[in-house]
């Protein structure tokens, strides 16, 4: 997938769609940072894909990333496990995201039933705060997203069909249980 070098001509996207994508980006990180983890799968389409990987893994084509979910059910399982099953020291995230760059945008096909899709990338920085107050820069990187507008005409909502989180560092401190 094209990554960092979109053509110099900006893809055509309406201000309404652009601002809907920006709302999605902001809402996503607020849901996670405020501990509303059950909302996390809802940002994705049913067949949505989520994966965290390291920059080096990504560059080398090593595909077995972290927290690899290839449908929404797997995301629901992850959140149930986070809540009820796994043992981890309580902590929260705070994401700061940069502006979203639209790499590609347009109708997926040519028929009226086709949907508007966009490929975007957004930088993030994530600080982890432990229950005792210790804070640490946990991860920085970028979201490489495929977004599809779903729903009835006139009231379409952007959903993540794929979010690839490319962390700059391949190191994870202690564990990765909350999605980035």
């Amino acid at each position: 997938m094209a990554a960092t070098n979109p053509s110099t001509r900006a893809p055509t996207i309406s201000p309404e769609r652009r601002s809907a994508i920006e709302r999605l980006m902001v809402d996503y990180v607020h849901a996670i940072d405020e501990g509303e983890y059950e909302r996390w799968p809802q940002f994705f389409t049913e067949d949505g894909r989520y994966q965290v990987t390291g920059r080096d893994n990504h560059a080398r084509g090593w595909v077995a990333g972290m927290l690899l979910c290839d449908n929404r059910d797997m995301m629901v399982d992850r959140i149930y496990s986070l809540r009820q099953v796994n043992v981890w020291e309580p902590h929260t995230y705070r994401h700061v995201i940069g502006p979203t760059q639209v790499l590609e945008a347009g109708m997926e096909g040519c028929s009226p039933a086709d949907r508007f899709t966009a490929k975007t990338q957004t930088n993030y920085l994530c600080v982890r705060t432990m229950h005792d107050g210790e804070q640490k820069l946990f991860s920085t990187g970028r979201y490489l997203d495929e977004i599809v507008f779903e729903g009835p005409a006139g009231a379409e909502t952007p959903m993540l069909r794929s979010r690839l989180v490319i962390a700059d560092s391949n190191r994870i401190d202690t564990l990765l249980v909350i999605p980035l």
Binding site: V63, G65, L67, D70, V87, L175, V177
Partner: peptide, 25 residues
């Protein structure tokens, strides 16, 4: 299948994330 089962191991692993925590405990 091997790629999918990478969810079980590593710092994010359904199983092994706890081995990252327990040594610290």
């Amino acid at each position: 299948i091997r790629i999918k089962q990478s969810n079980l191991v590593g710092p994010h692993g359904y199983i092994s994330m706890e081995d990252g925590a327990i040594g610290g405990f």
